[in-house]
Every structure is written in structure tokens, then in C-alpha cells.
Design a binder for these strands. Structure first.
Lengths: 112, 112
DNA sequence: CGTTATCGTTCCGGTTGCGCAACGAATCTT
DNA sequence: AAGATTCGTTGCGCAACCGGAACGATAACG
């Protein structure tokens, strides 16, 4: 996978503009990173784990999850083994959103 | 330039996480799109032009410019021809920031 | 000229996010 | 069993952002 910095800038530009134009749910950098990490990082995902991995506070994770689960992109489940922990898992809506987003990026990459 | 949706997801994931980890100035999607557009879109850039192009309100553009110019990434200048208009132009700091960001993305693309 | 239109900004009320500290619940330690 | 620890959440005060409307300044029009 090759991508020089010129191409990277052009790609990011196009995707950002397209995101606004289609007014997709405007997520924070944190919410975005969290969403991607839940779908692409190694499970299981817990609040403390995500906070540590992404270097953000636990309350920030909780609130990002509030937003993402309100959008239906993510789901909370109590850990059976340790009922203090919460396992964050994927949803169909979240998978569809990420898929669409990635397809958009891939399409825009071709037009560079 | 090729990029399938799997690669696109992985790339976005990595860049988002890296952005948080290095705690770069956390810009809104709008601020980001605006910054890219000023540097990569065809000048001249005016508030109304950016608002129309990015489908956001004029006050939103004004405030995004406040933030970006506070960071030194962008500069406002009165249009000599029509003194009602404001021309948004680039700065060295903004070019450096974008360059670094693009380099980061390019580096992360190689590790996919 | 005076009137009308356009430009970017500011005001307004409301929403959302933040970090820190404290919290109840669950688990671990001894 | 009792105290200490760890889990995620919530309360608090604060800062940033939002859209719509109104504003002063400038330009275009009749």
C-alpha cells in the first residue's frame, strides 16, 4: 500500500469535504477513533482499555459511547465474567456506516 | 491510486488513533475540511464561497476561521477589490501542520 | 444621490463536549 | 467478613460550537 504525502492530502481533503456535503453524523475525532477501534481493533473492548489505548479519560469514553450507541453504531453489554466491566460490541448499523464511509474514501481515492 | 475499502478503513483507523495519541490540535470535521480546502482548493477563498462549497452556515465558517487563525494556520485579508469580502490565505504554520499530518498518514499507510 | 443588495461578523439561546472528583456496584485481599 | 481496590458512570463548572436573526460596512443599482 503506497501513499505519498501529496496523495494523502488530496484524499483527506476530498473525504472531509464529501463528509460535510453528505452531512453524515459529525463525529468528534475521539468518537471516530473509538468507532474504528471497536470495529478494527482486537476485542474484547472495555471502557478502561479504550481509554488507555486512545489516551483519553474514562468519562470521555463513556460519553463517546453514549453518542455512538444513540446512533446505534455500538452496543454495551455487561461482562459475564466480571460484572463491573462493560463490553463494547458492534452493531449492524455501525458496520454499515463504516462500510459506506470506507467505500466513499475508496471511490474518492480513484479520482485523485 | 488504488485503495479498496478494507485498506481505507485500516488507514483511517490508524490515522485517527495516531491523531489522538500525539494529541494534535483536535479540530472539528468542519475545521479540518476548511483547512484542507484553503490549502488544496482553488483560490481565492471567501467566507461565503467556503460556506457554499462545504454546505455550512456563514457563522460556522467565521468561527472555524477564528479557531484556525488562532492556531496560526490561516490568515484573513480584506479583498482590495471588494472591501466587503475577506480573503482567506495560507500561512507557513498551516502548511507545516498539513505537511506533517500528510506525512503521518503516508507513513501509516505503509504499515498496513 | 437615495435605496437596495451583499459581505462578514456578532448576538442570542441552546446543545454538546471536556476534565476532575465523587459515586455505587462488583471484586479482590487478607 | 471487613476493608481496599477497580469497574463504569454521573455531577459539576466551564469552554466551544451550533443556526437564525440582526448588525454595520461596503458596493451596486436606479
Amino acid at each position: 500500500m503506497e501513499l505519498n504525502h501529496i496523495h494523502a492530502m488530496n484524499l483527506w481533503h476530498r473525504v472531509m469535504v464529501a463528509t460535510l456535503e453528505r452531512d453524515l453524523p459529525d463525529l468528534t475525532a475521539r468518537q471516530f477513533a473509538l468507532l474504528f477501534h471497536v470495529y478494527l481493533g482486537p476485542p474484547p473492548h472495555t471502557v478502561r482499555g479504550l481509554a488507555a489505548r486512545l489516551k483519553i479519560s474514562k468519562p470521555a469514553v463513556t460519553r463517546a459511547l453514549d453518542r455512538l450507541s444513540a446512533l446505534g453504531f455500538v452496543k454495551r453489554m455487561r461482562d459475564k465474567g466480571d460484572r463491573r466491566s462493560v463490553i463494547i460490541s458492534r452493531t449492524v448499523a455501525g458496520a454499515v456506516f463504516l462500510r459506506d464511509f470506507a467505500d466513499m474514501a475508496a471511490d474518492l481515492a480513484e479520482t485523485v
